[in-house]
Design a protein around this nucleic acid. Sequence first.
DNA 1: GCATTGAAAACAAACGATTGATGCATCAGA
DNA 2: TCTGATGCATCAATCGTTTGTTTTCAATGC
Lengths: 220, 220
Amino acid sequence: MRADAAERWQQITRVATDLFRRKGFSSTSMQDISDAVGLLKGSLYYYIDSKEDLLFEILRDLHKDGERIIAQVKFDSGDPLTQLRIYLKQCAVFGAVHADRLAIFLRDFHYVPPERQSEIISERKMYQRTVGTLVTEAKELGLTPPNLDVSLAATLISGAVAGVHEWLHPDGPRPLDQAADDIAEVLTNSIRIPSETEAKSVAKKGRPRAKVSSKARRPV
Amino acid sequence: MRADAAERWQQITRVATDLFRRKGFSSTSMQDISDAVGLLKGSLYYYIDSKEDLLFEILRDLHKDGERIIAQVKFDSGDPLTQLRIYLKQCAVFGAVHADRLAIFLRDFHYVPPERQSEIISERKMYQRTVGTLVTEAKELGLTPPNLDVSLAATLISGAVAGVHEWLHPDGPRPLDQAADDIAEVLTNSIRIPSETEAKSVAKKGRPRAKVSSKARRPV
DNA sequence: GCATTGAAAACAAACGATTGATGCATCAGA
DNA sequence: TCTGATGCATCAATCGTTTGTTTTCAATGC
């Protein structure tokens, strides 16, 4: 077999990932993909079975990468909040590194044929379940406010870390590791018991606030 | 008796909103909409100029509702963290109530013709700017950890509250007002100064876990 | 070392279906 | 009768996909 077959496949998935991310799955045509690859659109079907199949392959690869990352997280040290922090940091890094495919997953997953969805969807539930477990344990140990709604907090935190991919980039101004650390800390802090701090009286004079500027311009 | 023109228009936007939410903008056809409304697809063009125009009208209505809600928020009482809590609560309620159009906005906004996007996009930036301002003020007053990354925290909180619409429903098990209150509190708590709490020794049977030591210190 | 061969890889052309959109006819109510 | 509202037929373009053919190139035989 030709050695560049695998290379072509990688090229196709890479190009398709980029287009799906930018334009969305259903408004990306096979023509778009084949143009970017440099083939005729019919030739793509030598590598894939269908457009939905291509989406499935991309997301399944993401799924595998996600499983591998999660398996590397060590849960055997520290209190639940420390563990949660470590876990959330990993999630943040993962989101930044795989932002493209993650965005496609969160937005276009429903285009995957239903009978093939189950092979992918398990991972996300496990994400949320892991967070939920750690939050629950933290509350049982008295590390959280006693009236904390565990389910709500876990869902909120899961959703927050799932949205990180939209704005955290691996090549941003700050090192990714530091930013992910901060993210994990802020999110973990959201269920910690706050100290009763008084505001230092830094009297601010009349502050202009963000205001609704309705420049009702009608370009129509 | 031609007053049912407005009624038809409402019906069209309502049906389109539902379809756009469930299937996405680009995979919802005019045929789908006209079928649901009970007209032939050609007849829809008596009410709209184009498919993108219909999307624009829907999102602009959402935009207006958003502006109205924000204008009602009172910023003149309490410390920044209290104000932030109030603001985030309003955002959460808004997200739950207008979940359909918000989901469309966050996912399919880029289908709005570029020359019309500016009329809508201002609102979202203001959301984030308001959060950023309040977080900054809180830090200046010493209400947050001194090493808090203001920009990161604000972005994180904004993203978290923007994702609430995916899981918070007005007719959920808990009253919407209570749930939104909890959400706002948890998110505000994320930038509060935590107290150094020690975990109560709650013996957990089963697997040995959660070694509670003096690891409660926060690095960074 | 060169010609032959056969599968891999890509082209070329078309398929039927659907897309958003248009123009005109028609119908009903004021 | 006049006008707002809808039906009806159709447009060109594009969609994802299929089929048959051609090109490319490494392995093979001699």
